[in-house]
Amino acid sequence: MTDCGCDKAKAELEEYLHRELSDEAFRDVTEHLENCEDCTGEHLVGITMTVKMQKACREKAPEELRNAILSRLTEV
């Protein structure tokens, strides 16, 4: 394991959440999170925000609004 302190773990948290780190870096951050309450809290906030954003991106506009926008676009 390489040295993975709070600064490194927090700097790589976004990539960690999306599994965009190398295997070694991912293991380092995972191990750090297992032993650091502060970083674990940051991780939980990141997970919550990621889930909320994913949910928000799945929502669709009401059909009436969608049709009005498409109609307006064809007019332009």
Rank of each mutant, 00 (worst) to 15 (best):
L44T: 11
I69M: 08
L21E: 10
G41N: 09
S71G: 14
K55E: 06
C36F: 06
E15Q: 15
D23N: 08
T40M: 13
D7S: 11
E20K: 13
V45M: 04
R66L: 03
R72Y: 06
K52D: 00
S22P: 04
D7F: 01
T30E: 02
C36K: 01
G41E: 10
A25W: 02
E64A: 04
E14A: 15
A68H: 05
H32K: 02
A56L: 08
E63I: 11
K8R: 15
L21W: 08
K10M: 07
M1W: 07
G41L: 09
A25M: 07
E20T: 03
D23W: 03
A68I: 00
D38L: 09
F26H: 15
A56K: 15
T40H: 11
C4K: 13
E37L: 12
Q54Y: 06
E64H: 10
T40F: 05
E59R: 15
M49A: 12
K10Q: 14
L44G: 03
H18M: 08
E75K: 13
A68T: 12
D38W: 09
T74A: 11
D7C: 05
T2E: 13
E14I: 01
E63V: 12
I47L: 14
C39D: 04
R27G: 03
A25C: 01
I69W: 00
A9L: 04
R66F: 00
T40A: 11
R66Y: 03
C4D: 05
L13F: 05
E59I: 10
D3K: 13
S22R: 07
R66P: 01
R66V: 08
D7Q: 13
E20N: 07
R58F: 00
L70T: 12
D23Y: 06
E63Q: 15
K8C: 04
D28Y: 05
D7K: 15
P62I: 13
E75R: 14
C39S: 14
L44P: 00
C6K: 12
D28Q: 10
R66G: 00
E64L: 03
D28W: 08
Y16D: 10
H32Q: 02
D7V: 14
L44E: 11
G46F: 03
E24L: 07
E75D: 07
C36D: 11
E63T: 14
H43W: 09
H18K: 15
E24Y: 08
E37Q: 14
E12L: 14
P62A: 09
L33K: 12
L33S: 00
D23M: 12
E14D: 12
E64C: 10
L65H: 09
K60A: 08
C4F: 03
E63W: 04
C6A: 06
C57S: 15
L21P: 02
D3I: 05
N67H: 09
V76S: 08
A68D: 11
F26E: 01
E42D: 14
T40D: 09
K8Q: 09
I47P: 05
M49C: 05
C36E: 05
E24C: 04
T2N: 10
E75G: 09
E15M: 10
P62W: 11
L73H: 08
D23G: 07
D7A: 11
K55V: 02
V76I: 12
S71V: 01
L44W: 07
S22V: 01
N35S: 11
K8V: 04
Y16C: 05
E14S: 09
L17I: 10
L65D: 12
G5R: 13
E31R: 10
Q54M: 12
A25F: 00
K52G: 07
A25N: 08
R58I: 00
L33Y: 01
